[in-house]
């Protein structure tokens, strides 16, 4: 763990150097992030002109949910998304061979090698929005709320990672699709709104098959003091299960890679 953290820091450092090499347009990125979150808030406000609750959630609750969504999206764009295209490129160009000769877990390497650090702006904006929503609501989370929140947000991070990784692993076979991340986006966008908003089979799918409900709704409810021990435990179990599946899938893909030529 400590070793992986050290390697991660090294990845972060090189990516920073790489980014600075191009004197990245920090201001431009900052403005576009700000614009993105502003538009999202505006959309929610438009909803609330018509009604005062969305799937059982009040305005401030939805803001909080949006804050969590933004934070998670920032983390995805920071660590996961930049690696998708690189893995495709590695496999197509054959430089994936170098990854396999390194004494480091290959799944760890391909998922965190490339980081786009200015995407952390989204994370900061997201956290800001969470705090703002809590102030709006005049609610101070208790210690227990915070504990539940951190457990469930941890689970959602693991869940996102596992789902993302499974999608990324398919690039061993479908190396012609350039932007697999589009598939993930369509799914992840569903977590922008409370799960209660969805009806019928869609809700069942988003709760049990692709557990979108656990990604933003559970942490948001925890922070608002509406947590439920069983749900939190379930989110941990699901996260573990999905991580295990994604790992097995990665191993399986590697085996078929190493038994074929590139």
């Amino acid at each position: 763990m400590k070793r992986h953290w050290r390697i991660f820091c090294e990845f972060f450092r090189t990516c920073l150097v790489e980014e600075l090499e191009y004197r990245s347009e920090f201001l431009g990125n900052f403005l576009s992030s700000l614009f993105g979150i502003g538009m999202a808030i505006l959309t929610i406000q438009v909803f609330f002109y018509q009604t005062d609750n969305l799937g059982g959630w009040k305005y401030a609750d939805v803001l909080l949910l949006l804050g969590i969504f933004n934070t998670l999206q920032g983390l995805i764009d920071f660590a996961l998304r930049p690696n998708m295209s690189r893995l495709l490129q590695h496999i197509r160009m054959g430089t994936f061979d170098y990854v396999l000769t390194k004494p480091v877990d290959s799944m760890f390497y391909v998922s965190f090698r490339h980081l786009v650090f200015w995407r952390l702006i989204d994370v900061l904006l997201g956290i800001g929005l969470i705090i703002y929503a809590l102030i709006q609501k005049h609610y101070m989370p208790t210690i227990m709320d915070a504990v539940m929140f951190f457990i469930s947000i941890g689970s959602s991070l693991v869940l996102i990672y596992a789902l993302w990784m499974m999608l990324m692993t398919t690039s061993f076979w479908v190396i012609r699709i350039d932007d697999l991340s589009f598939v993930f986006n369509s799914f992840f966008e569903t977590t922008r709104f409370p799960i209660g908003m969805y009806r019928g089979w869609l809700r069942i799918v988003l709760t049990y098959i692709l557990p979108a409900a656990f990604i933003t709704s559970t942490p948001a409810l925890s922070l608002l003091g509406k947590w439920n021990g069983m749900t939190t435990i379930l989110s941990v179990v699901l996260a573990g299960l999905f991580l295990w599946i994604s790992r097995r899938f990665w191993r399986y893909a590697l085996r078929s890679y190493t038994s074929a030529s590139s």
Binding site: R6, T14, T95
Partner: peptide, 26 residues
């Protein structure tokens, strides 16, 4: 392993940075 046709160096930044990544990995 060194492959003449494939590079492990990071394209946009000096080779020293790749060396440092390898230092951490190894």
């Amino acid at each position: 392993l060194v492959m003449g046709q494939k590079s492990q160096l990071i394209w946009d930044i000096p080779p020293m940075e790749t060396f440092l990544v390898n230092k951490a990995i190894y």
